[in-house]
Structures are given as C-alpha cells and as structure tokens.
Amino acid sequence: MKGTGKMRNVNAIGAFGLGAVVTGAYIFQFVLHELPCPLCLLQRIGMLGAAFGLLMNVRFGLRPAHYAMAILSALFGAAVSIRQVLLHIVPVAGQPTGYGSPVLGLHVYTWALLIFIVTVIVVACLMLYNRQFRDSRVMPLTGFQQFVFWFIIVLAVANAITTFLQCGIMPCPDNPVEYKLL
C-alpha cells in the first residue's frame, strides 16, 4: 500500500531528525568540551527512546502502540528538561546564567524541551491519519530505513561508551569537567 510506505518513511525521517539532534549534542561534548550532566544524558535517552518508538513503526508496521512509545519517551524527556529549566530559571547574582553555552539565545536543555514538545505534537498529528493502521504488514526495510536504524543503534552504543569513559559504572558527577577513565 503506497500510503503505508510513505508513513513508514515519515517515521524514519522523524527518527533521523531526533538522532541528528543527539549528534548535535556530541558537537558540544567533543568540540566545545562541555561534558553532559546527568540530566543531559537522561534527555538524550528520551530523544533516542522517541526515535526508537518511530523505528518500531518502520520495522514492525504502523501501530498506535508504537506511536504511544514515542510519545511516552518524549514526555519523559520533556519532564527532565523542565526540571533542568526550573533549576536555572532564577539568575544568581555574580554567576553566569544557565548551564553550558546558549545556542541562539537559548540553552541546550531549553531547546531540548521545545524539541520534545514538538515531537509529542507531531506524533499526535501523525496518529490522526487513520488509514495507515489498516495495513500493518511487516515489510522489508529500504536502504534509507536500514541506514536510520543503524544510525540510532550506533548513537546508543556511542553514548554508552562515552558515558562509561566519563562516569565509569558509578553515578555521573553533577558538574563533570573531565573523563574519569581517560
């Protein structure tokens, strides 16, 4: 069915977009040498989890349950972002505002909150298209869909490795400045 194939591609593009945002976080980590805090890592998990929900649609066919997984993950990420925004909402005299460098005037966790909100809205809008659920056959992955799948898997593994180097197996420090194991 043509419409179903299109929707699977839309899901793959959405997952790729979320993966691209997590890749952007790596630019902060490796280029600007700003190591991620525990809440930042939880936001990355929320983003990759939302991408996982969308990829379930690509791999196992379009189902409302898969969209629900993406929404749940995005809501979790939004809750973490809100927590971090609220921690820094009151400026302290003599100290720089927020945590980390701002991008286009907003801190990274504020951008993350906006992205999670947009994710919830977009996924809810995708669910409005009822016809996609009529054909829930499992179809072979196209080249682009394979690429997105491996992209997100590699991101998850890379995050596991860099987090291990940064924190070891213990809880991550609140304000990390160096890799514990390097």
């Binding site: 525990p38 989890g49 996982f52 990829l55 379930m56 898997i153 998850a156 596991a160 991550c172």
Partner: peptide, 16 residues
C-alpha cells in the same frame, strides 16, 4: 547506571 540505560536501549534496538 547511565551506561546501563544506554546499553538497554542499544540492545532493545538490536532486538527490534
């Protein structure tokens, strides 16, 4: 702990 979360995510994706 955080490493474990990323590993679970990667494993789940591999299973998928």
């Amino acid at each position: 702990m955080m490493v474990l979360l990323f590993l679970i995510l990667a494993l789940s994706m591999l299973f998928a």
